[in-house]
C-alpha cells in the first residue's frame, strides 16, 4: 500500500491511500515539559491531551504543546531547527520518534514502503542534512518500514508537476528551510535548500515589533494576507515586509545556484508549496519578483500547490507507490525467470 511522510520543522504529515482518497495524518512537531503529578495526568487524560511521562516529567506533545505554552507563558520546545534535528535539543530524537510512531502507525505488512522527505544541504549555512536523513530512516526502519528518501523539492515536483512530465522547479517554503529542486523528466538536476523559512519571518517580526514569536506565528497562520494596507503596531506590516525580504532572498539564491549549472534548454514551470506559502497574495508577489529577477532558466508558468501544506507528503506518497510498484514488477519478472 505504501506511505509517504513529510518530516518538517513545524509539522509531521503522513499520507496514505484509502479507497479513492488520500488520507493525511498530521501532528505538530513540538513538545512541552511539565512537572508530573497524579492530578496533572488525570486532568490531561480527561481533556484528551497528548502526552507521555518519563522520569517523573510529563511531555505534552504536538499541537497541545503550543496551547499549554500559551497558557503557562512558556515556549514550546521544537525537536527540529532549520529543517533538521535540533542540535540544541537533547530530547529531540526520542520526541520525533514518538510523534513518528503516532502519525505513521504500524505498517500494514512488514517492509511496507515508506518514502520520507528530507531537506537538501543548505547553501547559505554551514549545515549538513546527512545525519538527520539517516536518523529518520533508522527510526522508520525500526518500525519495520522499508524506507526510501527523496528531497523535499522533488516531492513538490512529483506532486504538482505531473502534467509537465515532472519537469520544472519545485519550491517548498517550510518553517525552517526553503527547499528547491530543479527536475527534468522526474530526475533532479539540482537540489539545495536555503536556511530561511517561516521561522525566520517569525523571529524577525518578533525582534522588530516586540511581540512573542508564538503570537506572531499564530497571527501569520490566522488568515494573514500579504499586502500594503496595514494597521499601526500590528504584526501584519512587519510580516509583509519580511515575506518580501524572504522572497527576494530565495530568488537571489535560486538564480545564484542556477548560474552554476547548464540546465536543459526548455521552459520550466514553477510549483510553490509549503506552509509558509499559504498567505493570500504570496503567489502574486512571488511571481512578480521571479519574473523581474530574469532567472537563468526560462520560466513558463508559476503555480501554487492545491494544498501547499500537504504537497510534499503527497509527493512522497507518489514516490513510495511508484517504488512499490517497481518492486512488485521486479519480483514478478524474477518469478517469471525462475
Amino acid at each position: 500500500m505504501a506511505k509517504g511522510i513529510d518530516i518538517g520543522t513545524m509539522n509531521i504529515i503522513c499520507s496514505e491511500k484509502e479507497d479513492g482518497d488520500i488520507v493525511f495524518t498530521q501532528e505538530r512537531n513540538a513538545f512541552l515539559e511539565l512537572e508530573s503529578s497524579d492530578l496533572t495526568k488525570t486532568m490531561m487524560d480527561s481533556a484528551q491531551v497528548l502526552y507521555i511521562e518519563r522520569d517523573n516529567v510529563v511531555y505534552v506533545l504536538g499541537e497541545d504543546a503550543f496551547k499549554f505554552a500559551t497558557i503557562f507563558g512558556k515556549t514550546a520546545r521544537r525537536p527540529m531547527k532549520s529543517g533538521i534535528i535540533s542540535p540544541n535539543e537533547k530530547d529531540a530524537i526520542p520526541t520525533i520518534k514518538l510523534i513518528l510512531e503516532r502519525v505513521l502507525g504500524e505498517p500494514r505488512y512488514r517492509n511496507e514502503v515508506l518514502c520520507i522527505s528530507s531537506p537538501a544541504d543548505p547553501i547559505d549555512t554551514n549545515m549538513n542534512a546527512l545525519y538527520h536523513k539517516k536518523m529518520m530512516e533508522a527510526l522508520a526502519r525500526k518500525m519495520n518500514y522499508k524506507t526510501h528518501v527523496i528531497d523535499e523539492g522533488l516531492g513538490v515536483v512529483y506532486s504538482e508537476l505531473s502534467e509537465y512530465n515532472f519537469t520544472g522547479l519545485g519550491i517548498s517554503i517550510g518553517a525552517g528551510l526553503t527547499n528547491v529542486t530543479l527536475a527534468y523528466l522526474a530526475t533532479p538536476v539540482m537540489s539545495f535548500s536555503i536556511g530561511r523559512g517561516g521561522d525566520w519571518i517569525d523571529e524577525q517580526v518578533s525582534i522588530t515589533t516586540g511581540l512573542s514569536r508564538e503570537y506572531v506565528c499564530s497571527e501569520k497562520e490566522r488568515g494573514f494576507k500579504i499586502g500594503l494596507e496595514v494597521e499601526y503596531g500590528s504584526a501584519y506590516g512587519a510580516l509583509s515586509i519580511y515575506y518580501d525580504a524572504l522572497m527576494t532572498y530565495i530568488i537571489k539564491n535560486i538564480n545564484r545556484k542556477l548560474s552554476e549549472i547548464t540546465p536543459p534548454k526548455v521552459e520550466f514551470p514553477v510549483a510553490l508549496a509549503g506552509g509558509s506559502s499559504l498567505p493570500e497574495g504570496f503567489l502574486e508577489m512571488f511571481e512578480r519578483k521571479l519574473r523581474e529577477a530574469k532567472l537563468q532558466i526560462n520560466i513558463s508558468n508559476i503555480k501554487r500547490a492545491k494544498d501547499p501544506m500537504y504537497s510534499v507528503s503527497k509527493g512522497c506518497l507518489i514516490a513510495a507507490r511508484a517504488q512499490e510498484g517497481e518492486e512488485i514488477g521486479h519480483e514478478e519478472v524474477t518469478e517469471e525467470i525462475v
Binding site: D21, F24, S159
Partner: peptide, 14 residues
C-alpha cells in the same frame, strides 16, 4: 493517530 484530513484523489501521478 493525529489530526486527519481526507482529500479525494486517485493519485494518477504514480
Amino acid at each position: 493517530r493525529g489530526t486527519t484530513t481526507r482529500i479525494k484523489d486517485n493519485l494518477d501521478e504514480v
